[in-house]
C-alpha cells in the first residue's frame, strides 16, 4: 500500500497507486517519448502524461511552476535549433554569415525540428513528474531495492531541508539588506550565501543527529508499507509495459519511422497501432478514485 497526498493535505492510501506501478508507467512513457523523433507519438505521450498528472495532482499543488519550466526548456531547444541549424529549403530569414553561430539561413525545417526536440523534452519531463508531484518521498523509498534504501532515506530526509534552505536564504537576504547590504558583483553575495551555507550545514548535522536518535543505521530495516501490488497497480504497470511492447515491436516491424524535416519539410507518418500503444499510457488518468480524508 502506498500513500498519496490528497486535497487538504491528508494522505489517501486506499485510492492511491503503488510507487512501483508509477515507476513502471514513468519508465514506459519516457522510453516511448525518447525512442523516436516522430512528433505525433511524442505529442500523444505528452498529452497522456499531462492528463494523468492533472488527474492525480494533490490539491494545493500547482502545475504552474512546471508549466513555466517546460515552456522555458522547450523554447530554449527550439531557439537553439532554429538559430544554429541553418539547414532546410524554406528560408524564413537570412542573417549575415559573419555573425557567429546564428549567421546563415534560418529555416522552417530547423524550426520544426527544434519543436519536436522541445516536445520530446516536455513529454519526458511530464512522464517523470508524478514521481515528485504525486508520490511522497517515502513512497519512492519503499519502491527502491533494499541495497538503495538507506541512500534513498538520506536523500528523502535531505529534501525536507530544501524548503528550510529557501526560507533561510530569504531571511538572511532580507536581514542583510536591512543592514545595508546591496547585491552587486559575485563577491557581494558572500554576505548572503556564506551564512546560508553555514546554516544548511548546521541543519544537516541536526537532522543526522535526529535520525540517529531514532535508530537510523541500526541494521536490517523493515517497511511500514506493504510492497505488494493491487489489481489497479498491476493494470497500470501492465498497460504501460504493453504500450512499450507495442511501440518497440512496431518499430522492429518497420512502423513508426523517425521523422526528419530536412532537407524539406514533410508530414510525419502515423501508424495506428503505435498511436493505440501511446494512448494506453493515459489509462491512469481514468483510475483516479478520490477518497474522503481520514
Amino acid at each position: 500500500m502506498t500513500s498519496t497526498v490528497a486535497v487538504d493535505g491528508s494522505v489517501r492510501p486506499g485510492g492511491a497507486l503503488a510507487a512501483r506501478a508509477w515507476l513502471t508507467w514513468s519508465l514506459a512513457a519516457v522510453a516511448i517519448a525518447l525512442a523516436g523523433t516522430n512528433p505525433i507519438y511524442r505529442g500523444i505521450v505528452a498529452l497522456a502524461a499531462l492528463n494523468v498528472l492533472a488527474a492525480w495532482l494533490p490539491r494545493g499543488r500547482s502545475l504552474r511552476p512546471l508549466a513555466w519550466a517546460l515552456a522555458f526548456a522547450a523554447g530554449f531547444a527550439i531557439a537553439i535549433n532554429l538559430l544554429a541549424s541553418h539547414t532546410g529549403e524554406h528560408v524564413l530569414v537570412r542573417f549575415p554569415d559573419g555573425l557567429p553561430l546564428v549567421g546563415g539561413p534560418i529555416t522552417v525545417e530547423s524550426l520544426a525540428y527544434g519543436a519536436t526536440l522541445g516536445l520530446g523534452l516536455v513529454a519526458a519531463v511530464l512522464a517523470v513528474a508524478p514521481l515528485s508531484m504525486v508520490l511522497e518521498s517515502h513512497d519512492i523509498v519503499d519502491a527502491l531495492p533494499g541495497a538503495l534504501e538507506r541512500t534513498g532515506i538520506a536523500v528523502a530526509a535531505s529534501m525536507n531541508l530544501v524548503s528550510g534552505f529557501g526560507r533561510t536564504f530569504s531571511a538572511v537576504r532580507d536581514a542583510q539588506r536591512m543592514r545595508g547590504w546591496r547585491p552587486g558583483g559575485i563577491r557581494s553575495w558572500n554576505e548572503v550565501l556564506v551564512p546560508v551555507a553555514l546554516t544548511a550545514i548546521e541543519d544537516s548535522v541536526l537532522l543526522a543527529e535526529a535520525m540517529e536518535a531514532r535508530a537510523f543505521g541500526a541494521g536490517r530495516r523493515s517497511s511500514f508499507a506493504s510492497g505488494s501490488l493491487g489489481r489497479r497497480d498491476w493494470l497500470v504497470a501492465g498497460s504501460a509495459l504493453l504500450a512499450v511492447g507495442v511501440f518497440v515491436g512496431g518499430r522492429f516491424l518497420g512502423l513508426g519511422a523517425d521523422w526528419y524535416p530536412y532537407p524539406s519539410l514533410v508530414m510525419p507518418a502515423v501508424d495506428l497501432p503505435l498511436v493505440a500503444g501511446c494512448l494506453l499510457l493515459a489509462l491512469p488518468a481514468f483510475m483516479h478514485r478520490p477518497e474522503p480524508a481520514g
Binding site: 494522505v11 525536507n160 524548503s163 508499507a225
Partner: peptide, 23 residues
C-alpha cells in the same frame, strides 16, 4: 527545531520511521 528533525513528509510514516529502522 520541528523543521530539521523530520525525515518523511507525512505523519504516519514519520512516526513509524524509528520502528522501521529497528526492523
Amino acid at each position: 527545531d520541528v523543521e530539521t528533525q523530520s525525515v518523511y513528509g507525512t505523519v504516519e510514516r514519520e512516526v513509524a520511521f524509528g520502528l522501521e529502522n529497528l526492523g
